[in-house]
């Protein structure tokens, strides 16, 4: 039975794994449109990945096995999280009660190893990126968990698939303002975790201002392909959480659900592109205020939900 289910999930899984670079492409195209340019070809992120996979690797003599383990563990953690996060349908491959915590901590594990790999190079640039990454990661975590609290309260579940499924639809009817705040908080968390403007600038080439890119300065070849793909996958996963939280509905047939969610994700990617095109980056010291803002938003949502559910 489980075997059958697993086989049935294969096409869906393949689709989920193939999608992330396309989302990056949509962001790039949106930004190009705003800048009056054509932008790179639609499949450019895929070409980039293929190119990286075919390249050799150069390791600095300063690095140790931690540097080599970083990209692998990071991608493994994200893939593992992918089995727990609903992307197309409301169902997940391996979801269970309490998996929200595991998801958040898998992301944290990926972050820890990425950051350590950066520290392993003994470069001040990568230390800089590492410091920024953990600072903002730490600050986005309370907002993320408080959003989870709201979702858990509204749906009476600790399994992400249920927290974002049909029960949430009822919650939207019940405490719509709270849900709206949660979606806003999750959007900020998404922008932070995936290193987009106004937190980070994925397009910059300046080591001193980057967060994510500067951490992976020394990675090359397949290692870098893993990192690039993992970053795209992270966007897809957090984006899926956001999309499901914003537009929850019970599972329909997969052939309706899947295209619908893809369109929603594409819209989200376009939204991110629009944000990147219309805002300058925040000063790094201000990012913590933005994240505090996300925390306050989810806090307000929690208060609203408490008043409703504990009436």
């Amino acid at each position: 039975m489980t075997v059958l289910r697993a086989i049935g999930a294969v096409p869906e899984a393949v689709a989920v794994l193939a999608l992330p670079p396309m989302l990056l492409s949509i962001i790039a195209k949106t930004k190009a449109w705003f800048g009056g340019r054509d932008g790179p070809p639609w499949l450019q992120p895929y070409y980039d990945l293929m190119k990286l996979l075919r390249k050799g690797v150069v390791y600095s003599r300063t690095t140790t096995w931690v540097f080599r383990a970083g990209p692998i563990v990071n991608l493994a953690a994200l893939l593992c999280a992918a089995t727990l996060i609903p992307v197309f349908s409301d169902d997940t491959l391996l979801g269970f009660g309490g998996d929200v915590i595991l998801i958040a901590y898998l992301l944290a594990l990926g972050r820890m190893l990425t950051v350590l790999a950066a520290m392993d190079t003994g470069s001040s640039f990568e230390g800089m990126g590492a410091s920024r990454e953990v600072t903002f990661g730490t600050m986005s975590e309370p907002a993320l968990f408080l959003s989870f609290v709201v979702l858990a309260l509204a749906t009476k579940s600790l399994s992400l698939a249920e927290m974002l499924g049909a029960p949430l639809q009822a919650a939207w009817g019940d405490v719509a303002p709270a849900m709206l705040l949660v979606v806003a908080a999750l959007l900020i968390v998404l922008l932070t975790e995936t290193c987009r403007v106004p937190v980070d600038d994925p397009a910059t080439h300046l080591e001193l201002t980057m967060i994510h890119e500067v951490m992976v300065l020394d990675h090359s070849g397949p290692d870098f392909a893993y990192i690039t793909y993992a970053a795209a996958l992270k966007f897809l996963l957090l984006g899926s959480i956001l999309v499901h939280a914003a537009l929850p509905h019970a599972s329909w047939a997969l052939w309706i659900d899947a295209p619908l969610r893809v369109v929603e994700l594409a819209v989200l990617a376009m939204l991110v592109g629009v944000i990147e095109s219309s805002l300058a980056r925040l000063r790094l010291q201000r990012v913590s205020l933005l994240l505090a803002g996300a925390f306050v938003l989810s806090g307000l949502a929690a208060v609203l939900t408490f008043y409703r559910t504990h009436a």
């Binding site: 930004k31 705003f34 800048g35 009056g36 340019r37 403007v197 106004p198 600038d201 397009a203 910059t204 300046l206 201002t209 990147e276 095109s277 219309s278 805002l279 300058a280 980056r281």
Partner: peptide, 16 residues
């Protein structure tokens, strides 16, 4: 300057 603060539209147009 706009590129450095990631303000895309002005950076692209001023570049042109």
């Amino acid at each position: 300057l706009c590129t450095d603060v990631a303000f895309l539209p002005a950076s692209a147009y001023l570049g042109r």
